[in-house]
């Protein structure tokens, strides 16, 4: 599959930017978070592609780390959303601009 390297890479970058666009546009904090997970999916794909091309396991291990981190971030992030919801009854990002200027 080496010949497909650029395809994998392009797919990775595309996923990354789909995620980025979603993260910028959506209002629901959970969906924004999922979009960031899509970005991470793109990153994972990039790492795995490179781990293939460079014959080096660094990338594969990195992906495992990223997955673990994603799980941790999900836990902490959802706890924050939960807290926010309990306090205000909403997780709409456009409702929170107490801190500004």
């Amino acid at each position: 599959m080496i010949e497909h390297q650029s395809l994998f890479l392009a797919l990775a970058v595309t996923l990354f930017f789909i995620g980025a666009a979603g993260a910028v546009v959506r209002r629901n904090a959970i969906i924004v978070f999922m979009c960031i997970e899509i970005m991470l999916g793109g990153v994972n794909l990039a790492f795995l592609t490179f781990t293939r091309t460079t014959q080096n396991l660094d990338g594969a291990f990195m992906v495992m780390c990223i997955m673990a981190v994603a799980a941790v971030e999900a836990a902490v992030g959802l706890a924050i959303f939960f807290l926010l919801y309990r306090k205000t009854g909403s997780i709409d990002l456009e409702k929170f601009n107490l801190l500004k200027w």
């Binding site: 980025a20 993260a23 904090a29 924004v32 978070f33 960031i36 970005m39 971030e73 902490v76 992030g77 924050i80 959303f81 807290l83 926010l84 306090k87 990002l93 929170f96 107490l98 801190l99």
Partner: peptide, 13 residues
């Protein structure tokens, strides 16, 4: 909480 939300989302991004 709002600060945590902002930092978390921006940090992950």
């Amino acid at each position: 909480i709002e600060a945590a939300l902002k930092y978390f989302l921006m940090g992950a991004f």
